[in-house]
Amino acid sequence: MSNLAFPPAMYGEAVSGDPAETAIMRAIQGVDAGLVTHRIAADQVGAAIVMTPEVPLAKAMTMMPLCGVGFQNALGALAPPEVSVHLEWGGAIRVNGARCGRLRVFASDTDPAAVPDWIVVGWDLALLPLDSETGNDPDRTALYAEGCADVDPATLVEAWARHSLLWIARWEDEGPRPLNAEWRGLVHGVGEDITQNAHSGTFLGVDEDFGMLIRDNIDTHLVPLTTLLEDTP
């Protein structure tokens, strides 16, 4: 069980291994939606949530950027005001411009048109650098190296759950537009040249289901969020 405090629609389970793997196992066993698995270690914190969508996978995949926005809102409120938190379309979490963690997504089905039995969105965040020689990889950082030593990881997990639940309710009530607008202000790399799923060009933004739009010299290509699904362990 968990000694963390979650909103009424959620409940927690502390785990010793990968929170996403445990959440997937519980989802396969038929656990109720709203389970938040979490692991807090000296050097890393992570959590995952089990959801049971009522829409096809193509739309249910919105839960990944939604949980990313929930995470940014949570860490943004807990960190000092000068600390910036941004999200990559592919799941990376950036703190002060460098990669500090990642979001991951799993589902019971890979058919975009099918309603999945469950979706699991998880994240992990480095609290301490992997080694004492920080600076070897300037594109990688850790939370405590970015002036966030006072951020309590347990409080971060709780705040992420609350903010994500608020965004789920808003998405259900108002549709994707408010979430899309919030996410657009947080996404890293719009307007830059990228390569994703064999498409190279300028990252224009996303469609209403958060599919990536890439413009090359001739065409605009859509890379759906379902391409980010990881295989179930």
Score class of each variant (00 low, 15 high):
Glu82Tyr: 00
Glu146Tyr: 02
Tyr11Pro: 04
Leu35Pro: 07
Met212Arg: 14
Asn197Met: 13
Leu213Val: 11
Tyr11Ile: 03
Leu225Asn: 01
Ile168Lys: 15
Leu204Gly: 00
Gly34Thr: 05
Pro112Glu: 06
Gly91Lys: 09
Ile49Glu: 04
Gly201Ala: 09
Leu186Tyr: 04
Trp167Arg: 14
Ala198Glu: 15
Gly68Ile: 04
Met61Cys: 11
Arg104Phe: 09
Phe210Met: 12
Leu229Gly: 07
Ser108Ala: 14
Gly189His: 06
Val121Gly: 05
Leu229Pro: 05
Ala47Pro: 00
Leu130Gln: 03
Ala181Glu: 15
Gly30Gln: 09
Gly91Met: 10
Thr52Gln: 15
Arg94Leu: 15
Gly122Lys: 02
Thr37Pro: 07
Asp137Tyr: 14
Ala149Gly: 10
Pro153Ser: 03
Val105Pro: 01
Ala74Gln: 08
Pro224Ser: 06
Arg26Pro: 08
Asp32Ala: 14
Thr227Asn: 13
Thr62Glu: 12
Ile28Ser: 10
Asp219Pro: 01
Asn3Ala: 04
Asp117Leu: 13
Asp137Cys: 14
Phe106Ile: 00
Ala113Ile: 02
Gly76Ala: 07
Val206Asp: 05
Glu54Met: 09
Ile24Leu: 05
Asn217Gln: 09
Cys100His: 07
Asp124Arg: 08
Val187Lys: 06
Leu166Gln: 05
Leu143His: 03
Leu78Glu: 11
Arg140Ser: 02
Asn217Lys: 10
Gly147Thr: 06
Leu143Cys: 02
Leu204Phe: 00
Ala47Asp: 01
Ala145Tyr: 00
Asn73Lys: 06
Ala77His: 12
Glu21Met: 13
Tyr144Asp: 06
Gly135Arg: 03
Leu66His: 00
Gly122Pro: 01
Cys148Tyr: 01
Lys59Arg: 12
Met51Lys: 15
Ala159Tyr: 13
Trp89Gln: 11
Glu230Gly: 14
Glu192Thr: 15
Ser132Ala: 11
Leu225Ile: 04
His199Ile: 05
Ser108Cys: 04
Val83His: 04
Glu21Ile: 13
Met1Tyr: 07
Ala98Val: 08
Asn3Met: 07
Gly135Ala: 13
Pro224Tyr: 01
Pro8Tyr: 03
Ala142Thr: 01
Gly135Asn: 11
Asp150Glu: 12
Thr232Ser: 08
Leu87Cys: 14
Asp124Pro: 02
Pro112Cys: 06
Ala14Gln: 11
Asn96Cys: 13
Ile214Phe: 03
Ile40Ser: 02
Asp139Ala: 14
Gln72Val: 12
His86Gln: 14
Asp111Ser: 08
Ser84Arg: 15
His188Lys: 08
Val206His: 11
Asp18Ile: 15
Gly135Ile: 12
Trp167Phe: 08
Pro176Asp: 04
Tyr144Lys: 11
Ala126Gly: 07
Val36Gly: 04
Glu192Ile: 11
His199Gly: 02
Val121Ser: 05
Ala20Tyr: 01
Thr141Glu: 02
Asp216Asn: 15
Met61Gly: 03
Leu127Phe: 03
Asp219Ile: 09
Pro112Gly: 04
Asp43Gly: 10
Ser2Lys: 10
Arg94Tyr: 13
Val157Ala: 11
Thr62Asp: 08
Leu222Gln: 05
Leu75Ile: 08
His163Trp: 01
His86Tyr: 12
Val95Ala: 10
Glu21Arg: 15
Gly201Ser: 09
Asn73Asp: 09
Trp89Thr: 12
Asp43Arg: 14
Met63Pro: 00
Trp89Arg: 10
Thr155Trp: 08
Arg140Asp: 01
Gly70Phe: 02
Ile214Ser: 06
Leu4Asn: 03
Ala79Ser: 13
Pro178Cys: 08
Ala79Asn: 10
